[in-house]
Design a protein around this nucleic acid. Structure first.
Lengths: 195, 195
DNA sequence: CTATTTGAACTGACTGGTCAGTCTAAAAAG
DNA sequence: CTTTTTAGACTGACCAGTCAGTTCAAATAG
């Protein structure tokens, strides 16, 4: 499990993830070649195909991996918090995540609303997963009376997720010099109605 | 060029725009081939190259065309309106625009925050153009005291633009059966703090 | 301790297909 | 007449995926 062999393999896969995520964030999936990815990961092309069954497969696993980290962070952030504070915690967690995994967030923003791609079904599932955690929190808020009873939980949660993504990525791409506090404040100001 | 002598040519270009925008919205720029575009536009491949100097060029002109329409609509919408109502009018206009030019909005959402593509500079300029109109309105609101004086006009305008885009496209892609009124309401609820 | 074996991990040249862009000659439109 | 469109063959670059061969690290034997 953790002997030298598999440690090496895990390491290689990690390097491939990192190379792929950066390139795809910048150029998009189709414009990124497997040779590019291998080159940036400092690995032979064959190694990519030893570790993943196709370019598509690499990308799907990448999506799973990245969104898995995000939903874990969400769950951790709201654990034991009362509804009112929980929504704020989700926003801060998302922002923190996007700052840390900037390239992944950029990639997600670009590919999330694309239909007609092989991985679209996977993405729908993963989206459900992430928004699901938000929805639980929002629902708890509605139940406890902290949030308005007529709030459409599904729509509000999806909007919350999308808004955070777009505002944060816009910040990273077009105004990276602004401190994160400003962005957090803007985002919370926009979202205060819901949260 | 557009003075009636070439009505036929304008028509062909329009058909090419429409074909390209749909395909690129679904699949992305790189995954869309020139042959596909020509086929869908019911035009010979050579005609594409008679009208545009390259695939890239076609795409850039498409961006200019689409964002031009949006900024025109923005300007028209706020003409003569007091600041308070003007922001609401912008939101409604953007939503209306996205409903009408769904594919273009989807494409914009996917390509807007991509760096390292040939058209990135063009996109920055066009973004400035659209957000500029919003910023004028927001600034007028701040000046007139309708909006808080400490509001960062630039950030707020960019957020407004991005939020509208992502919420509307999310609606079109994932919940198309919902009536537009719901979405407008959600969006206005989210944005009420700013507008 | 050193030598040998094993299978997992990795390599990179190669293949078959795809695609942007070119070109032609001729037809259609205005 | 000129401008625009057609049909489609062609080229050269590029690229996903393959595969026969190599390296490596750990296990086992001597």
């Amino acid at each position: 499990m953790t002997d030298g062999r598999s440690r090496r393999r895990v390491d290689t896969r990690q390097r491939l993830y990192e190379a792929a995520v950066e390139l795809i964030a910048e150029q998009g999936f189709s414009a990124t070649t497997v040779d590019d990815i291998a080159l940036r990961a400092k690995v032979a092309k064959g190694t990519v195909y030893y570790n993943f069954k196709s370019k598509n497969d690499l990308f799907e696993e990448l999506l799973r991996h990245g969104i898995g980290l995000l939903t874990d962070a969400f769950r951790e952030a709201v654990k034991g918090l009362p509804p009112r504070e929980a929504v704020g915690a989700l926003v801060r967690t998302q922002l923190e995540y996007i700052r840390r995994y900037r390239a992944f967030a950029q990639l997600l923003l670009s590919e999330m609303w694309r239909t007609n791609r092989e991985w679209h079904q996977t993405l729908i599932l993963l989206r459900e997963q992430a928004i699901g955690v938000i929805a639980e929190t929002v629902q708890a808020g509605v139940d406890s009376g902290d949030l308005p009873a007529d709030l459409d939980v599904r729509v509000a949660s999806a909007a919350l997720f999308g808004v955070g993504l777009v505002v944060a990525v816009d910040w990273l791409v077009f105004q990276p010099e602004r401190p994160i506090e400003d962005v957090e404040e803007s985002l919370l100001a926009i979202v205060r109605r819901v949260g």
